[in-house]
């Protein structure tokens, strides 16, 4: 016991050092941006820029649309990925390789190319599919108030990150034994999934959910090129050429997203 306490104390200093350097590296640029938004050589200190944002037109509407898109994306991503990855861990290694490649591929396609591909596909609707039932589907997924086409795109964009998080979590627990134990106790697959596996994957599911939500709230290129106005697009639209406003708005969206994720993670924690 005594040996352990001395071992644990030494990393403490290194740990504080690492955290301190990281804090400096990550916070100083944000501080510089923040300083720009509140201070100007001519006008001095002023927080008025932030007041302008919250009263701007369309703030709540675009934020709620992004939140809705985010939640839907998270649900779809997890619903699709968990059964597949579980099945891989339970004994289909070849499937695992296929899944790994397929899930990491969307990462290397730059969003702008992805949009070019989506646009080409959407272009087929008026040209080729006009007389088939798919025409209305392709139009319906582009409804401006809740574009499902964006959910489809975001699920694809989030897949690599979700895969990596879930993979790390699944490797850390002994899936085979847990599943066998549950099955032997008479559990059906759904119970196995929800009562045995998921509670043990809390960290990685949380990581996957955070990454996905942050991705959806910050995603700009796909949404703007397809002509929709979620939160990130709204941010760029209202800031226009007002320098301080555009920087302030992006900082605010950072803080907002972070606060949101903290709330979600706090809610998740309370259940323990």
């Amino acid at each position: 016991m005594a040996a352990m306490t001395t071992e644990i104390r030494r990393p403490g200093l290194g740990r504080a050092g690492v955290l301190a350097i990281a804090a400096v590296y990550f916070l100083v640029p944000l501080a510089a941006s923040f300083w720009f938004t509140i201070h100007n050589d001519a006008t001095g200190f002023s927080f008025s820029t932030y007041g302008d944002i919250l009263t701007a037109d369309g703030f709540t509407q675009s934020l709620f649309m992004s939140l809705g898109l985010g939640v839907t994306t998270i649900v779809v991503v997890l619903a699709l990925m968990l059964p597949a990855m579980l099945a891989v861990r339970l004994g289909a290694p070849r499937l695992g390789q296929v899944l790994e490649v397929v899930c990491t591929l969307p990462l290397v396609v730059p969003p702008i190319t992805f949009v070019a591909g989506i646009s080409t596909v959407l272009r087929w609707a008026p040209d080729q599919l006009a007389s088939t039932p798919f025409w209305a589907t392709l139009i319906a997924i582009q409804k401006p108030s809740f574009p499902i086409v964006l959910v489809l795109a975001y699920v694809v964009l989030a897949t690599p990150f979700a895969y990596r998080s879930l993979d790390a979590g699944l490797r850390a627990i002994d899936v085979k034994t847990l599943v066998e134990a549950s099955r032997n106790l008479g559990a059906g697959w759904v119970t196995v999934m929800f009562r045995t596996i998921l509670p043990n994957l809390r960290t990685s599911i949380a990581s996957a959910a955070f990454l996905t939500m942050a991705l959806v709230l910050g995603e700009y290129t796909v949404a703007v090129l397809l002509g929709f106005r979620p939160f990130a697009v709204w941010i760029v639209t209202i800031s226009g050429a007002n320098a301080q406003l555009s920087v302030a708005v992006s900082l605010l969206s950072l803080i907002l997203t972070w606060a949101l994720l903290l709330v979600v993670s706090g809610v998740g924690r309370k259940r323990t």
């Binding site: 955070f210 990454l211 942050a214 995603e219 950072l254 994720l261």
Partner: peptide, 9 residues
């Protein structure tokens, strides 16, 4: 962790 999720994007 949450800040990392945000900063990663």
């Amino acid at each position: 962790l949450t800040a990392s999720g945000v900063l990663a994007n």
